[in-house]
Design a protein around this nucleic acid. Structure first.
Lengths: 170, 170
DNA sequence: CTTGACTCTGTACCCAGATACAGGGTTTAC
DNA sequence: GTAAACCCTGTATCTGGGTACAGAGTCAAG
């Protein structure tokens, strides 16, 4: 299962990581790492004479950032953009900040809904536990959802149909 | 653009909705509605003599529920499951309750994580706002992410490397 | 009875984000 | 010098959640 330790030792001396090591350290999977690279998220890592990727340890931070951004709801394209802007140094940070602000607002909405939903579910469960299951009405979650639901239209589904004429995605 | 009013009036009398009306009322799009039906999210609506779907107004609530659940992060399969449980009414309650309990636990985990990310993002934004953008250091989000970031391993990507032979992932 | 808006089924396609695999090269311990 | 365990590139495939036709029927008005 685990690779033999020898090279691992060697690498650690050299301070350079091979893709498998990065994968193991981050839990991301070599295929995905190469995929990220193709997408421009990782830049092009140094290569050994034989063509193996030789990652600098910094990559771990970069990947941590990517994963966090992703978990927060940024798409890979958005993350690429942010990363590229940083790379270019000059960077119009205003845009990034705007994007981040929007993300924050989205997150808040999501959180509120999730919290509400959670409480409904908990309530329903408590109900069930209190008085057996019998009684026909089975799912307060559904039965009562419209009571405090903001109605479909309120859901943020608008930019659905983007036309994607932009190729980018090398 | 808008359909002529005539039939619309008619429908309203009859209390039964055609797919286009449902689409307009919910903003969901007829193709998606049929798609949901195929996926078992809507049951099979009544049909007119000529085969048109004749939705009962209840469907709007059901769709509102679906959209809310989706916005919160449930997959269509999960939603289907919930809806089916209700449909079965008599329900093997112990199982249902178990499932619900599991869902609740999942929700709690998700909430905690989301909350954490939200706060990190908010903090980063505040940082940015405090000290302008100027100076070469361009993106606190990246530069400092590791400061308050729990490192990659802590990110909720755990089932990442699974062998995928498992389909269901309830 | 034609026209236009609407509907039907079925299949194909799209995008994001990965995964898998084929067909090869490299490293290294034994 | 060979086998295990890596790594490479390139291409194909998958999952989720839809969209987009194509080809045909329906319906109400003029």
């Amino acid at each position: 299962m685990l690779k033999t330790e020898r090279q691992f030792e060697k690498r650690r001396e050299g301070r350079t990581l091979r893709i498998g090591e990065v994968s193991e350290a981050t839990g991301i999977g070599v295929e995905a790492l190469r995929f990220y690279e193709r997408r421009g998220l990782l830049g092009r890592p140094a290569r050994t004479a034989s063509g193996y990727r030789a990652y600098d340890e910094e990559v771990l931070e970069r990947l941590a950032f990517i994963k966090r951004a992703q978990a927060i709801g940024f798409s890979l394209d958005e993350i690429t953009e942010i990363l590229e802007m940083r790379g270019r140094g000059e960077a119009p940070c205003v845009e990034v900040r705007e994007a981040a602000r929007r993300k924050l607002a989205e997150l808040d909405v999501r959180l509120r809904e999730l919290r509400r939903y959670r409480n409904e579910l908990a309530r329903t469960l408590a109900d069930w536990d209190e008085r057996g299951i019998d009684e026909g009405h089975f799912c307060g979650l559904i039965e009562h959802s419209h009571v405090h639901a903001p109605a479909v239209a309120a859901v943020p589904q608008p930019p659905a149909r983007k036309k994607r004429s932009e190729g980018k995605r090398t």
